[in-house]
Protein backbone atom coordinates (compact mmCIF):
# COMPACT_ATOMS: atom_id res chain seq x y z
CA UNK A 1 0.00 0.00 0.00
CA UNK A 2 1.07 3.56 -0.64
CA UNK A 3 1.32 5.92 2.33
CA UNK A 4 -1.66 8.01 1.26
CA UNK A 5 -5.04 7.19 -0.23
CA UNK A 6 -5.68 10.10 -2.56
CA UNK A 7 -7.40 8.46 -5.50
CA UNK A 8 -8.51 5.06 -6.69
CA UNK A 9 -5.39 4.72 -8.79
CA UNK A 10 -3.34 4.55 -5.58
CA UNK A 11 -4.68 1.01 -5.14
CA UNK A 12 -3.64 -1.83 -7.40
CA UNK A 13 -5.76 -4.93 -7.53
CA UNK A 14 -3.94 -6.62 -4.64
CA UNK A 15 -4.18 -3.51 -2.45
CA UNK A 16 -7.87 -3.02 -3.18
CA UNK A 17 -8.61 -6.67 -2.48
CA UNK A 18 -6.64 -6.44 0.76
CA UNK A 19 -8.76 -3.49 1.88
CA UNK A 20 -11.99 -5.33 1.09
CA UNK A 21 -10.81 -8.55 2.77
CA UNK A 22 -9.66 -6.62 5.82
CA UNK A 23 -13.00 -4.84 6.03
CA UNK A 24 -14.77 -8.20 5.87
CA UNK A 25 -12.61 -9.63 8.67
CA UNK A 26 -13.16 -6.56 10.81
CA UNK A 27 -16.90 -6.69 10.26
CA UNK A 28 -16.97 -10.36 11.14
CA UNK A 29 -14.73 -9.89 14.19
CA UNK A 30 -17.02 -7.18 15.53
CA UNK A 31 -20.32 -8.83 14.60
CA UNK A 32 -22.52 -9.43 17.61
CA UNK A 33 -19.95 -8.10 20.06
CA UNK A 34 -20.91 -5.87 22.91
CA UNK A 35 -17.54 -4.12 22.84
CA UNK A 36 -17.25 -2.79 19.30
CA UNK A 37 -13.80 -1.45 19.84
CA UNK A 38 -10.32 -2.60 18.93
CA UNK A 39 -7.08 -1.30 20.49
CA UNK A 40 -5.23 -1.28 17.18
CA UNK A 41 -4.58 2.45 16.78
CA UNK A 42 -4.25 3.31 20.47
CA UNK A 43 -2.10 6.40 20.80
CA UNK A 44 -2.50 7.46 17.18
CA UNK A 45 -4.14 10.70 16.27
CA UNK A 46 -6.49 11.02 13.34
CA UNK A 47 -7.59 14.49 12.26
CA UNK A 48 -10.82 14.88 10.35
CA UNK A 49 -10.17 18.03 8.33
CA UNK A 50 -13.47 18.97 6.73
CA UNK A 51 -13.66 22.06 4.57
CA UNK A 52 -17.07 21.03 3.32
CA UNK A 53 -20.10 20.04 5.31
CA UNK A 54 -20.58 16.33 5.09
CA UNK A 55 -21.95 14.97 8.28
CA UNK A 56 -22.34 11.42 7.04
CA UNK A 57 -18.79 11.03 5.76
CA UNK A 58 -17.28 12.72 8.79
CA UNK A 59 -19.25 10.57 11.21
CA UNK A 60 -18.32 7.45 9.30
CA UNK A 61 -14.62 8.25 9.50
CA UNK A 62 -14.94 9.33 13.11
CA UNK A 63 -16.62 6.08 14.09
CA UNK A 64 -14.06 4.08 12.15
CA UNK A 65 -11.14 5.80 13.87
CA UNK A 66 -12.74 5.56 17.32
CA UNK A 67 -13.50 1.87 16.91
CA UNK A 68 -9.79 1.40 16.32
CA UNK A 69 -9.08 3.42 19.50
CA UNK A 70 -7.41 6.31 17.71
CA UNK A 71 -7.71 9.78 19.18
CA UNK A 72 -9.94 11.74 16.82
CA UNK A 73 -9.86 15.47 16.33
CA UNK A 74 -12.57 17.05 14.22
CA UNK A 75 -11.30 20.15 12.53
CA UNK A 76 -14.08 21.67 10.51
CA UNK A 77 -13.87 24.82 8.47
CA UNK A 78 -16.65 26.42 10.44
CA UNK A 79 -15.71 27.91 13.77
CA UNK A 80 -12.00 27.38 13.31
CA UNK A 81 -9.10 29.40 12.05
CA UNK A 82 -9.88 28.04 8.60
CA UNK A 83 -12.93 30.27 8.34
CA UNK A 84 -10.70 33.19 9.24
CA UNK A 85 -8.74 32.67 6.06
CA UNK A 86 -5.90 30.45 7.21
CA UNK A 87 -4.34 28.79 4.21
CA UNK A 88 -4.36 25.07 3.62
CA UNK A 89 -0.60 25.04 4.03
CA UNK A 90 -0.67 26.80 7.39
CA UNK A 91 -3.36 24.42 8.58
CA UNK A 92 -1.23 21.51 7.40
CA UNK A 93 1.78 22.80 9.31
CA UNK A 94 -0.37 23.17 12.42
CA UNK A 95 -1.57 19.58 12.13
CA UNK A 96 2.00 18.49 11.56
CA UNK A 97 3.12 20.25 14.73
CA UNK A 98 0.34 18.49 16.64
CA UNK A 99 1.66 15.15 15.41
CA UNK A 100 -1.28 13.90 13.40
CA UNK A 101 -0.66 10.33 12.24
CA UNK A 102 -3.50 10.51 9.75
CA UNK A 103 -5.40 13.34 8.13
CA UNK A 104 -8.80 12.65 6.63
CA UNK A 105 -9.54 15.58 4.36
CA UNK A 106 -12.69 16.74 2.64
CA UNK A 107 -12.30 19.79 0.42
CA UNK A 108 -14.19 21.59 -2.29
CA UNK A 109 -11.04 21.98 -4.40
CA UNK A 110 -9.95 19.08 -6.56
CA UNK A 111 -6.42 18.04 -5.64
CA UNK A 112 -6.39 19.62 -2.15
CA UNK A 113 -5.48 16.24 -0.56
CA UNK A 114 -2.57 15.92 -3.01
CA UNK A 115 -1.30 19.31 -1.88
CA UNK A 116 -1.74 18.38 1.77
CA UNK A 117 0.24 15.18 1.24
CA UNK A 118 3.25 17.33 0.31
CA UNK A 119 3.13 19.16 3.60
CA UNK A 120 2.42 16.55 6.28
CA UNK A 121 4.31 13.44 7.31
CA UNK A 122 1.23 11.47 8.31
CA UNK A 123 -1.00 9.56 5.93
CA UNK A 124 -3.58 11.58 4.02
CA UNK A 125 -6.93 9.99 3.23
CA UNK A 126 -9.05 11.75 0.65
CA UNK A 127 -12.63 11.96 1.91
CA UNK A 128 -13.81 13.72 -1.23
CA UNK A 129 -12.08 16.51 -3.13
CA UNK A 130 -14.07 18.78 -5.41
CA UNK A 131 -15.10 16.98 -8.54
CA UNK A 132 -12.07 14.71 -8.43
CA UNK A 133 -12.31 11.58 -6.29
CA UNK A 134 -13.79 9.98 -3.22
CA UNK A 135 -11.87 6.72 -2.98
CA UNK A 136 -13.31 5.36 0.27
CA UNK A 137 -16.81 5.72 -1.19
CA UNK A 138 -15.69 3.56 -4.11
CA UNK A 139 -14.21 1.02 -1.69
CA UNK A 140 -17.41 0.76 0.29
CA UNK A 141 -19.40 0.47 -2.92
CA UNK A 142 -17.13 -2.33 -4.15
CA UNK A 143 -17.43 -3.99 -0.76
CA UNK A 144 -21.22 -3.79 -0.93
CA UNK A 145 -21.32 -5.22 -4.44
CA UNK A 146 -19.05 -8.10 -3.48
CA UNK A 147 -21.11 -8.78 -0.38
CA UNK A 148 -24.40 -8.85 -2.31
CA UNK A 149 -23.29 -10.55 -5.52
CA UNK A 150 -20.36 -12.57 -4.20
CA UNK A 151 -17.89 -11.27 -6.76
CA UNK A 152 -16.63 -8.22 -8.60
CA UNK A 153 -14.91 -9.78 -11.57
CA UNK A 154 -17.13 -9.43 -14.61
CA UNK A 155 -19.92 -7.69 -12.71
CA UNK A 156 -21.69 -5.19 -14.97
CA UNK A 157 -22.03 -1.85 -13.16
CA UNK A 158 -24.01 1.01 -14.66
CA UNK A 159 -23.38 4.45 -13.19
CA UNK A 160 -26.13 6.93 -14.01
CA UNK A 161 -26.26 10.69 -13.69
CA UNK A 162 -24.01 13.70 -13.19
CA UNK A 163 -20.69 12.06 -14.00
CA UNK A 164 -19.16 15.43 -14.89
CA UNK A 165 -19.31 16.77 -11.36
CA UNK A 166 -19.12 13.44 -9.52
CA UNK A 167 -16.10 12.42 -7.48
CA UNK A 168 -17.97 9.21 -6.65
CA UNK A 169 -18.17 8.31 -10.34
CA UNK A 170 -14.48 9.01 -10.93
CA UNK A 171 -13.38 6.84 -8.03
CA UNK A 172 -15.80 4.06 -8.87
CA UNK A 173 -14.80 3.90 -12.53
CA UNK A 174 -11.16 3.55 -11.53
CA UNK A 175 -11.56 1.13 -8.65
CA UNK A 176 -14.21 -1.11 -10.20
CA UNK A 177 -12.13 -1.40 -13.35
CA UNK A 178 -9.12 -2.34 -11.23
CA UNK A 179 -11.20 -5.03 -9.57
CA UNK A 180 -12.38 -6.49 -12.87
CA UNK A 181 -15.90 -5.09 -13.11
CA UNK A 182 -17.31 -3.74 -16.38
CA UNK A 183 -18.49 -0.17 -15.96
CA UNK A 184 -20.98 1.67 -18.16
CA UNK A 185 -21.71 5.36 -17.71
CA UNK A 186 -25.14 6.67 -18.64
CA UNK A 187 -25.90 10.38 -18.59
CA UNK A 188 -27.06 13.21 -20.77
CA UNK A 189 -24.01 14.21 -22.85
CA UNK A 190 -23.87 17.56 -21.03
CA UNK A 191 -23.11 15.75 -17.78
CA UNK A 192 -20.26 13.66 -19.15
CA UNK A 193 -16.79 15.25 -19.21
CA UNK A 194 -15.04 15.93 -22.49
CA UNK A 195 -12.38 13.24 -22.37
CA UNK A 196 -14.62 10.57 -20.84
CA UNK A 197 -13.74 8.42 -23.84
CA UNK A 198 -10.33 7.81 -22.30
CA UNK A 199 -11.86 6.26 -19.16
CA UNK A 200 -12.00 2.48 -18.76
CA UNK A 201 -15.78 2.49 -19.15
CA UNK A 202 -18.46 2.24 -21.80
CA UNK A 203 -20.51 5.38 -22.32
CA UNK A 204 -24.17 5.53 -23.29
CA UNK A 205 -27.05 7.96 -23.31
CA UNK A 206 -29.96 5.50 -23.23
CA UNK A 207 -30.73 4.15 -19.78
CA UNK A 208 -33.44 1.75 -20.95
CA UNK A 209 -31.03 0.04 -23.31
CA UNK A 210 -28.47 -0.60 -20.59
CA UNK A 211 -30.64 -1.66 -17.65
CA UNK A 212 -31.37 -5.25 -18.79
CA UNK A 213 -27.59 -5.81 -18.95
CA UNK A 214 -26.80 -4.35 -15.52
CA UNK A 215 -26.00 -6.32 -12.39
CA UNK A 216 -25.58 -3.09 -10.45
CA UNK A 217 -27.18 0.30 -11.06
CA UNK A 218 -25.52 3.14 -9.21
CA UNK A 219 -27.57 6.34 -9.24
CA UNK A 220 -25.69 9.60 -8.74
CA UNK A 221 -27.15 12.62 -7.05
CA UNK A 222 -28.21 15.30 -9.50
CA UNK A 223 -28.21 18.79 -8.09
CA UNK A 224 -31.07 20.99 -9.12
CA UNK A 225 -28.79 23.96 -9.70
CA UNK A 226 -27.32 22.16 -12.73
CA UNK A 227 -30.64 22.83 -14.37
CA UNK A 228 -30.06 26.57 -14.16
CA UNK A 229 -26.75 26.18 -15.98
CA UNK A 230 -28.52 24.48 -18.88
CA UNK A 231 -27.06 21.04 -18.34
CA UNK A 232 -30.63 19.79 -18.87
CA UNK A 233 -33.92 21.52 -19.55
CA UNK A 234 -35.94 20.61 -16.47
CA UNK A 235 -36.03 18.29 -13.49
CA UNK A 236 -39.05 16.58 -15.02
CA UNK A 237 -37.27 15.85 -18.28
CA UNK A 238 -34.18 14.62 -16.43
CA UNK A 239 -36.24 12.34 -14.26
CA UNK A 240 -38.12 10.97 -17.24
CA UNK A 241 -34.97 10.16 -19.22
CA UNK A 242 -32.50 9.25 -16.49
CA UNK A 243 -34.45 8.61 -13.29
CA UNK A 244 -34.81 5.11 -11.87
CA UNK A 245 -38.46 4.31 -11.19
CA UNK A 246 -40.34 1.08 -10.57
CA UNK A 247 -40.99 0.51 -14.27
CA UNK A 248 -37.30 0.70 -15.08
CA UNK A 249 -36.33 -1.37 -12.03
CA UNK A 250 -38.59 -4.15 -13.32
CA UNK A 251 -36.41 -4.74 -16.39
CA UNK A 252 -33.27 -5.36 -14.30
CA UNK A 253 -31.95 -8.93 -14.01
CA UNK A 254 -33.38 -10.82 -11.03
CA UNK A 255 -30.49 -10.38 -8.59
CA UNK A 256 -29.46 -6.90 -9.70
CA UNK A 257 -28.97 -4.28 -6.99
CA UNK A 258 -29.56 -0.54 -6.84
CA UNK A 259 -27.00 1.73 -5.16
CA UNK A 260 -26.84 5.40 -4.28
CA UNK A 261 -24.00 7.19 -2.47
CA UNK A 262 -26.47 9.55 -0.81
CA UNK A 263 -27.88 11.96 -0.06
CA UNK A 264 -30.74 11.08 -2.41
CA UNK A 265 -33.11 13.34 -4.29
CA UNK A 266 -36.16 11.12 -4.09
CA UNK A 267 -38.36 11.66 -7.10
CA UNK A 268 -35.51 13.14 -9.10
CA UNK A 269 -32.88 10.51 -9.91
CA UNK A 270 -34.50 7.75 -7.85
CA UNK A 271 -38.12 6.98 -7.06
CA UNK A 272 -39.06 6.33 -3.44
CA UNK A 273 -40.27 2.80 -4.13
CA UNK A 274 -36.89 1.99 -5.71
CA UNK A 275 -34.90 3.49 -2.87
CA UNK A 276 -36.90 1.46 -0.35
CA UNK A 277 -37.00 -1.80 -2.34
CA UNK A 278 -35.16 -5.01 -1.46
CA UNK A 279 -32.77 -4.34 -4.34
CA UNK A 280 -31.63 -1.15 -2.70
CA UNK A 281 -28.32 -1.33 -0.78
CA UNK A 282 -28.44 2.24 0.42
CA UNK A 283 -28.56 1.43 4.13
CA UNK A 284 -25.91 -1.31 3.81
CA UNK A 285 -23.64 1.15 2.05
CA UNK A 286 -23.68 3.35 5.13
CA UNK A 287 -22.86 0.44 7.47
CA UNK A 288 -20.18 -0.88 5.14
CA UNK A 289 -18.63 2.55 5.06
CA UNK A 290 -17.48 2.19 8.67
CA UNK A 291 -15.88 -1.25 8.18
CA UNK A 292 -14.20 -0.16 4.97
CA UNK A 293 -12.80 3.00 6.51
CA UNK A 294 -11.57 1.02 9.52
CA UNK A 295 -9.73 -1.22 7.08
CA UNK A 296 -8.20 1.78 5.32
CA UNK A 297 -7.11 3.41 8.57
CA UNK A 298 -5.66 0.15 9.89
CA UNK A 299 -3.73 -0.52 6.70
CA UNK A 300 -2.41 3.04 6.34
CA UNK A 301 -1.74 3.90 9.97
CA UNK A 302 -1.35 0.54 11.71
CA UNK A 303 2.18 -0.21 10.66
CA UNK A 304 3.54 3.22 9.99
CA UNK A 305 6.30 4.30 12.33
CA UNK A 306 5.99 7.95 13.35
Amino acid sequence: MKRHLLEAADLDRDDATLVLDTAAQIEQALAGREVKKLPTLRGRTVVNLFYEDSTRTRISFELAAKRLSADVINFSAKGSSVSKGESLKDTALTLEAMGADGVVVRHSASGAPHRLANWVRGSVVNAGDGTHEHPTQALLDAYTIRQRLGRLDGVRVTIVGDVLHSRVARSNVGLLHTLGAEVTLVAPPTLLPVGVGSWPAEVGYDLDAVLPKSDVVMMLRVQAERMNASFFPSAREYSRRYGLDARRMAVLPDDAIVMHPGPMNRGMEIAAEVADSVRSTIVEQVANGVSTRMAVLYLLLGGSPQ
Partner: peptide, 18 residues
Protein backbone atom coordinates in the same frame (compact mmCIF):
# COMPACT_ATOMS: atom_id res chain seq x y z
CA UNK B 1 -11.97 26.95 -15.86
CA UNK B 2 -8.80 25.54 -14.30
CA UNK B 3 -6.90 23.69 -17.02
CA UNK B 4 -7.06 22.52 -20.62
CA UNK B 5 -10.29 20.64 -21.24
CA UNK B 6 -9.49 17.11 -22.32
CA UNK B 7 -8.65 13.65 -21.03
CA UNK B 8 -6.60 14.96 -18.15
CA UNK B 9 -9.10 17.53 -16.90
CA UNK B 10 -11.76 14.84 -16.99
CA UNK B 11 -9.68 12.60 -14.78
CA UNK B 12 -8.36 15.29 -12.44
CA UNK B 13 -11.80 16.77 -11.86
CA UNK B 14 -10.63 20.26 -12.78
CA UNK B 15 -13.02 22.40 -14.80
CA UNK B 16 -11.94 22.47 -18.43
CA UNK B 17 -10.79 25.46 -20.49
CA UNK B 18 -11.74 24.40 -24.01
Amino acid sequence: AQMHEGDRSARLGLTGWP
